[in-house]
Each structure stands twice: as C-alpha cells, then as structure tokens.
Design a protein around this nucleic acid. Structure first.
Lengths: 149, 149
DNA sequence: CACCCTGGGTTCCTTAAGGGAACTCAACTT
DNA sequence: AAGTTGAGTTCCCTTAAGGAACCCAGGGTG
C-alpha cells in the first residue's frame, strides 16, 4: 500500500514514527542493542524477509540511528547503534515494560533487566526531569511549544 | 501486503508492537490522550482514511487499550483510554522526548509537557524502579526471564 | 410529515508494501 | 577450479493503505 509520511506533522511522536515506525524497525533495533548485529543473524533471528530487512537497515542508517561498519577485509558489515540510536533504547525498554506488565501472562517476562548501578532486576520508571517524581499519563498538561507552527 | 504477526514471539517488545505497532496507532492514542476522542475529529486531525481509522480503533478496543463509550442518546461514541491504555502514554512521552531532542530542529519542540507535581516544563527521564538512578541503553544487562521458553 | 444534517461508519477500486524464494557477487578456503 | 559465506538483489504474489463515494440511524426544521 502507499503509506502516509508522518514526518511533516508538527508532532514529535509522528516524526519519531517516521524514523522507527515502520514494521520490524523496533525489533531490528532491539537485536542490534542485544548484540545481533549482522545481516544474516538479524534475518534469521526475526524471520524477516531479506528484502525488507535491507530496506529497514538502509533507512535506519540514513536516519543516523545505526551505522554500518566493516568487520573484515572481505565486504562484511555489522550494524551498530549510534548515540542517536542508543537514545532510542529507553523507548524499547518502556515498550518492553508495558508488554511485561500487560501481555506476559502466567509465564512471566521473557527478558529481565539488571541495572548496573544497583545490580538488581528492575524496569524503567518514567520520572520528571526536574523534580524526579513519577511522570505518567495524568501527571502532565500539554502546552503548545515554540515549534507548534 | 500480508504482515507477520509479532505476538507469538517471546519478546515483550514484539507483543507490544502487535497491539500498537500498526501505522497510525500511536498517533490515535496521542489524540485520545490529548482529548481528541471522536471518530470525525481524529480522522480530520490526522488525515487518516476512515477505513483504516475504523480498523485501528476496533483493534485498540479489542486489545483493551481504548474503550468506546456513548455520549448521546443518538448512536454517538467517544473513545477513551483504559487503564491499560493510559499506561502506554509513558511510551508516547518517551517517543516525543526523542523526537524533541533529535528531530525538532531550530523551531524547537511542538509540544511542552508541564508536570503537575512541580509545575515545571520537563520531559520524561527513565529511571531504575529500584534505585532511582538513570536507566539508559548502557545501564542494563539483559538476562533470560521466566517466560523465555 | 418530508426533508436535511450529523456522526460514525462501510464499500470499492487503485496503488504500493511485505513475504518469500531464487539469484548474484566479491572475497576467501580447499 | 570449485565450493562457501555473508550480504545483499530480483521477481512474483498477496494484502494492506489511500481515498472517494455511499449508507444509515436519529434528530432538527419548515
């Protein structure tokens, strides 16, 4: 199908979706984050078609979220998160947290997150950047910002 | 095209994508969160086709993320976030934060978030649920959990 | 009472994106 | 010289998204 581009909307959620909103993209980032960095490994891990994987990787590289680095004298490449891409990982952790909480069922979470600083198994907890108190749906008002034109 | 279902993977990110990963779904949730709750309003605000909007709303209601409530004696309905749906808003805020940071450009963020508890403009900051210290990409190890079968 | 309006969808056709298998190509290895 | 491996391309088929037109229930208006 043709798909509408979201990037022109005056909305940071829409713009973010233009970068990582296509099918598979968050799972590709998860794989790269978790250390699955090579084309065939990602393809096998996800069961994605090679064609679509190529398209997604190219787009993520173009958007500066991944970089493609040679790892051999032969033409062999690995994908790595850039700083911009690593900054998306917290979104992945929030998504994982929601899935753990609402969709994991009896079996419990498939993956656990151990926090380096305290050594304990935990999850992300969104807090206000100013006061450090919880920041959930009802804790904020939305106001028009400078880029709201 | 046919689209692979992610829900069967032992991955909470994949399962979450099965609920809100289709095109437009996060933007629909954003609208409902921001108070745009009626079919025609959402349709006009996003510029989404009515057909796809119907499909997405039905799916989000089936998944327990939205509920469809009458607001008139006539057959008129509004969509509201359930508790499960409100718990997704933090994901939206993290996405918005990333877009604000990496994609907003000169104009600055289109939307500002005022935190009720402190009254200031801020953004979400992911913290460890145990120790309260920052929880970013490099701050965690991934371990297999009970549901990793 | 006949007509129009409104909100909330459905139908139908066109276009393009995803699935998947087969194919390519450059650089080793044997 | 032939085989292997990683990293993609190509091609065909199916199905989802875009978009405009249509439908329908329940008011309101003359």
């Amino acid at each position: 199908m043709q798909r509408t581009r979201f990037g022109e909307m005056a909305c940071s959620i829409a713009r973010t979706l233009d970068v990582i909103g296509e099918p598979w993209s968050p799972l590709i980032l998860r794989d790269v984050w978790a250390g699955v960095r090579r084309f065939d490994h990602i393809q096998a891990d996800l069961g994605i078609s090679r064609k679509v994987l190529t398209e997604r990787l190219n787009h993520l590289v173009e958007q500066g979220v991944l970089e493609r680095l040679p790892y051999d004298a032969r033409p062999r490449y690995e994908y790595h998160l850039t700083v911009k891409g690593a900054d998306l990982v917290e979104m992945l952790m929030v998504m994982a947290r929601w899935g753990d909480r609402w969709l994991a069922g009896e079996a419990g979470p498939p993956v656990l997150y151990r926090h380096h600083a305290c050594g304990r198994i935990g999850h992300v907890d969104p807090r206000c950047s100013h006061c450090g108190e919880p920041m959930h749906a009802d804790d904020v008002d939305l106001l028009p910002g400078p880029g709201s034109a």
